[in-house]
Nucleic acid binder design. Structure first.
Lengths: 191, 191
DNA sequence: GTCTATACTCTGATAGAC
DNA sequence: GTCTATCAGAGTATAGAC
């Protein structure tokens, strides 16, 4: 329903806009990423952006979805023997794209409003992520978690998000090391 | 330097503005708290607000400072035999003022920019909070932390902030219970 | 379907009158 | 000291050109 043959140009433009938005946000940060700026990079007017995404908030929500797609979030978190490794990989990678961390955190706050287009995104993502982490610990026989899997997953998600806030304000904070110590303390390896 | 005798009216107005802003934000949420809205409640024009605080960002930063003042954050976190109780009290209280939680989280993101007026606020607050928590665990002989006090404090701060993000999107999340379970798992009581 | 031109509203901010 | 009048910029809605 979305793309037939003759809509090829539109689909390409859509992708181009998302990529440009990713680039502008990564480079100039979120606050300077106005519709005008992004439109200028694409070589188009702000209204053209709204033609494809309807609203600025929806555009940014799609940017986050594209990011998850790029990162292959699911396979990385779901497929490993040691579930903590996938999480640590994601955390280390985020260190290299501060603008996207900013966008993610900013929308996480705005999405508190149920009417915000990212509201559903965060609910779904959160659930998927927790299921993957919980399943990982359930599967991993080498560790012995001190908390039930769902609480464990919720705590890890909270720590990862909260450390990002600390890291944005003070980049010397080493997120990966702290999460690693926490996991080892909370789910020690059996022996 | 800030207040001499003849500026009494100005000082009073300043306080009035902060109290009204606290009330409006706590009740109606952050997103509708424009300068115009706040000014309307106080009974002045938006320009009057800027006369006292210079910029919107500085006004909101002062609102957060006033909140800490109201809550008596330091004594609550620093003075107790069991350091976890103070933290849990703060978390439970935050449940009743969602607008302020929203404001706090939003500014925590914006303050990533070192030029933002709240940047220094978050750095200082974060350090004070971690020192209080670390000192509390150091003093508490009934618990045996599995992590060094500073990492412990950083983790608890991150969990508290991260859970607020989850709670804003899904208010059924019980922040206090999760933090309580985490503390018991991470710093079990001796016996 | 794709996009420009234009205009409208709201925002935070400034200059200057009282 | 305080606030009115005004400003430039944001995001958005509409009409209509290609």
């Amino acid at each position: 329903m979305a793309q037939r043959g003759s809509y090829a140009k539109g689909v390409a433009r859509r992708e181009e806009i998302l990529e440009s938005a990713l680039e502008v946000i990564g480079r100039d940060g979120y606050q300077n990423a106005s519709l005008k700026q992004i439109a200028h990079v694409v070589g188009v007017t702000p209204a053209a952006l709204l033609h494809y995404f309807g609203t600025k908030e929806e555009l940014f929500t799609e940017v986050l979805r594209k990011r998850d797609e790029h990162d292959g979030m699911d396979p990385r978190l779901a497929g490993l023997a040691d579930p903590s490794q996938g999480l640590l990989d994601v955390i280390r990678h985020n260190t290299e794209v501060p603008g996207l961390v900013e966008l993610f955190s900013r929308l996480a706050v705005d999405a508190a409003d149920p009417a915000h287009p990212a509201h559903a995104y965060f609910l779904e993502r959160s659930e998927r992520l927790r299921e993957a982490v919980a399943a990982g610990f359930h599967r991993d026989a080498t560790r012995e978690p001190a908390l039930d899997p769902d609480t464990m997953a919720r705590v890890l998600q909270a720590v990862a998000d909260g450390l990002q806030l600390q890291w944005m304000i003070d980049p010397t904070v080493d997120m990966a090391v702290i999460v690693e110590q926490l996991i080892d303390a909370l789910a020690p390896r059996r022996r």
